[in-house]
Design a protein around this nucleic acid. Structure first.
Length: 427
RNA sequence: GUGGCCUUAGCUCAAUCGGCAGAGCAGCGGAUUGUGGAUCCGCAGGUUGCGGGUUCGAUCCCCGCAGGCCACCCCA
């Protein structure tokens, strides 16, 4: 019963787990570089209106999950922690006149997002996303490029069995008519609808499509499908996206019920999905086109597309599949039981670190056997034994993996370790 | 936000019918005072999540709260 603990839905990332995140970030940054997306940052909080207007007042993310910050004075502004990255990035695009940059503006962002949800495994109130946006290109080729980028991330991160779900949800031309038709269809059968679903009929009929309520399954199966109601321009766009994906060899599953939870999406919508072991959150990432968002946030009409991938869920899947690796062990541990030689051990370790070598110094007063035990358990390749008389440079270099040991002069140590390190890396 | 299950040492878990709270791992220290990963011995570590109630007596039964998990809701 600790006095304090991390707030509900948040957690500390301790060294082993933080290392997994670090590796995911490295994969994401490398992919950003290769695909020409440049990293940026936005504030962790914005005026609440940025999210309310961008994401949509009626969405769950805004209606019940937004982390609002209460103003400290009457005239204070209402802020909110960001629940996703796109709205803030687009706000920045408009604010900084990025429409004058070469288009499209391709940016990425890695950082924490916040949603006031009820926590569960893989679902946190503070979670991390890698977000990628291409603003200013109407597609459809950029759609396929971006979708392929997301799929590649999972493979390079170590998850091979991530599915891609794909849909088009139309635009302002064709979606209103479709939504009306869908609402009419469900209204005909309103008696069969549970209360929650009946309310949605008025607020957001699209959501009825991906409700998991089993009593809706039959109705959903016979519901009109947006892909059959796309206007010619949207249909052509969607066809081209699919053909580009085929060209790239990207497999996907058409998912007519995929509608996404944010209002700003138009046309292309997609989700990365993995059948979890049990009860795990299965959506690993998702995204879509948002051709009206820039204008909605005060800019000129500008198309855009992006995705957000959940790093926590990828890490969780890696760990449950036993694919997460631990931290790299030190190359060598400097040991020695003579209190008189402690300064010598410290000095030696400092010199090796200055040479760029990862070494640990055992500065404890434990007996030598314990120190070697610790070094071996660290997974260190070598132990450097500093004994009495080492001041004049006589050391023992012990290969913990081979079990061999030989005397070595201090002046030769860095060179020896470096040589072993490089052959170890490539061997 | 709704419903359900769970909470004992740092971690994973025991504790018979309500009767003095235990083990493994991890940590620390030893094993004829200087050589290792799974050898042996020992030490330390607990207000049994928190607060009430029932009882001679509660880890155990009841209520509330908190946290975790599961299914919804929803999504990353």
């Amino acid at each position: 019963m600790p006095t304090f603990r991390a707030p509900r839905g948040t957690r500390d990332l301790l060294p082993p787990e933080r290392a997994v995140f670090g590796r995911l970030e490295a994969v994401a940054r490398d992919l950003s570089r290769r695909y020409g997306y440049r990293e940026m940052e936005t504030p962790l909080f914005e005026q609440a209106a940025v999210f309310e207007r961008g994401i949509g007042e009626m969405t769950d993310v805004i209606e019940k999950e937004l982390f609002r910050l209460v103003p400290r004075s009457e005239e204070g502004e209402v802020w909110a922690l960001r629940p996703e990255a796109t709205a803030g990035i687009v706000r920045g695009y408009v604010q900084h006149g990025m429409h004058t940059w070469p288009q499209p503006v391709k940016v990425s962002l890695i950082g924490p997002m916040f949603r006031y949800d009820r926590p569960q495994a893989g679902r946190y109130r503070q979670f991390w996303q890698w977000d990628v946006e291409a603003i200013g290109d109407p597609g459809p080729a950029i759609d396929a490029e971006l979708i392929e980028l997301g799929a590649r991330f999972y493979r390079e991160a170590g998850l091979d069995d991530v599915l891609l779900l794909l849909n088009s949800i139309g635009d302002t031309e064709c979606r209103p008519a479709y939504v009306a038709e869908l609402a009419a269809y469900f209204r005909e059968h309103a008696v069969q609808l549970p209360d929650l679903e009946r309310r949605r009929l008025e607020t957001n009929p699209l959501r009825l499509l991906d409700s998991k309520d089993p009593s809706l399954a039959a109705l959903q199966a016979r519901a009109p499908r947006i892909v059959d109601r796309l206007c010619p321009a949207c249909a052509e766009h969607f066809g081209a996206v699919r053909s580009h994906l085929d060209t790239l060899g990207i497999a996907y599953r058409l998912e007519p019920a995929l509608v996404r939870g944010l209002d700003y999406y138009t046309r292309t919508a997609f989700e990365y999905y993995r059948e979890g072991a049990e009860g795990q959150q299965q959506a690993l990432g998702g995204g879509g086109r948002y051709d009206g968002l820039v204008q909605l946030l005060g800019g000129q009409p500008t198309p855009g597309i992006g995705f957000a991938l959940g790093l926590d869920r990828v890490a969780l899947n890696l760990q449950s599949s036993g694919l997460a690796e631990g931290q790299r062990p030190p190359l060598a541990v400097i040991v020695g039981a003579e209190p008189a030689a402690t300064a010598e051990r410290l000095k030696l370790a400092t010199a090796l670190r200055a040479e760029g070598l990862p070494v640990r110094a055992d500065l404890s007063r434990r007996k030598l056997g314990r120190q070697l035990e610790g070094a071996a358990r660290d997974g260190a390749h070598f132990a450097v034994i500093v004994a009495e008389g080492s001041e004049n440079g006589a050391l023992q270099l012990k290969d913990l993996q081979a079990g061999t040991q030989r005397p070595l002069a201090a002046v030769d140590l860095a060179r020896e370790l470096r040589r072993a390190e490089s052959s170890h890396r490539h061997g």
